[in-house]
Computed example of a mutant assay.
Amino acid sequence: MPLFENKYRPPLLFRNGHFSTVFASGLRRITNLKQYRTQLPTPDGDILDLDWSDAPTKTDKLAIIIHGLEGGSIRPYMKGSARAFNQNNIDVVCLNLRGCGGHTNKLYTSYHSGRSDDLKTVVESIITKYRYQHIYLNGFSLGANIILKYLGEQDYPSQVKAAVAVSAPCDLYGTMLELHKPKNSIYAYRFKKTLIHKLKEKQKQFPDHIDLASIYSIKTLKDFDDVYTSKAHGFIDAEDYYRKSSSLQYLKDIKIPTLILNALNDSFLSPSCYPQGIAKNHPNLYLETPKYGGHVGFFRYGGTYYSEQRAIEFIQDLQ
């Protein structure tokens, strides 16, 4: 499909990628959203926390939203997107990936950038239990990669109609290299801090699986993926995990209309995360690369951010 022409022009201060990223993540407030939680058992004996919010009137449309690394349904971008969908008469379920719902998950394994089986479990459960005939997927950062991989690696129910991937790290190795650069040191430090905290809790649960010395050896995010992510989830090492979990290799097989919205001033994304060549020749893949937006930023006056507006517009244009 032709690449989208972009007209997003935020206020001057928000044209700085870092400011846009930090403001949207830490300073935005979403108060007018009512959510309720259900829990979904997984086939391997774990639990997924699902936070729902309803449209004002009965609908057969549902959006499934997935957060980024160390995020959850409480993050402003999740709540903002849920509110936008609800206001357009679409019910929402925010999927908290394993260990991201406010408590430690049951198993030694957890979530990671390529773990799409939990999304499959959620989709199939919803179709079995509920009335929804139009299901839309909306992912942010790590969650965007999961959705893109899910759509390209397998068949899925006909009720899944479209997807929007925001700030998608399509090439995980390239993204890892960017996160380890000085420009992203603050973000990398915060991610590593929370990940190690969770890993220490896992060590208490499963002392035979990992020791404290291994945890204390972790100095970088790649170290974390070498020590825990790869080993716990059946990969050889971090690079094997990045290679097999990157959605870039799956994009060509996506069968439903899918929008990737990646800002050019996103400091997390490598050049390989902007798949222009694939999108130009793809019947279902749409790529929009605004000059501004940062990483999951996209500030816009009026309460609804640009990424939320584009997700609604993209879905509505298909109807």
Rank of each mutant, 00 (worst) to 15 (best):
F4T: 01
R9D: 05
R9K: 11
L13M: 13
H18M: 10
S20M: 14
I30R: 01
L33G: 06
Y36H: 13
D44C: 07
L50M: 11
K58Q: 12
T59H: 08
T59E: 03
D60C: 08
S73F: 08
S73D: 03
I74F: 12
R75E: 03
Y77I: 04
K79E: 08
S81Q: 15
F85I: 00
V93H: 00
C94L: 14
H103K: 15
T104C: 10
N105Q: 13
K106S: 12
S110Q: 06
H112W: 08
S113A: 15
S113W: 06
K129A: 14
R131W: 03
K149A: 03
G152N: 02
D155W: 08
V160M: 03
A162F: 00
A162M: 10
V164T: 15
D171S: 04
Y187V: 09
H197F: 11
K198W: 09
K200P: 06
Q205K: 14
Q205R: 10
D211S: 10
T220M: 09
D223E: 12
V227G: 03
Y228Q: 02
Y228E: 00
H233P: 06
D237W: 08
R243P: 01
S245Y: 04
S247V: 10
I254H: 02
L259A: 11
N262A: 04
P271H: 09
S272T: 15
C273E: 05
Q276I: 02
I278D: 11
K280Y: 05
H282D: 07
H282G: 06
P290F: 05
Y292R: 01
R300D: 04
E308D: 11
Q309E: 13
I312W: 03
I315N: 00
Q319T: 12
Q319E: 15
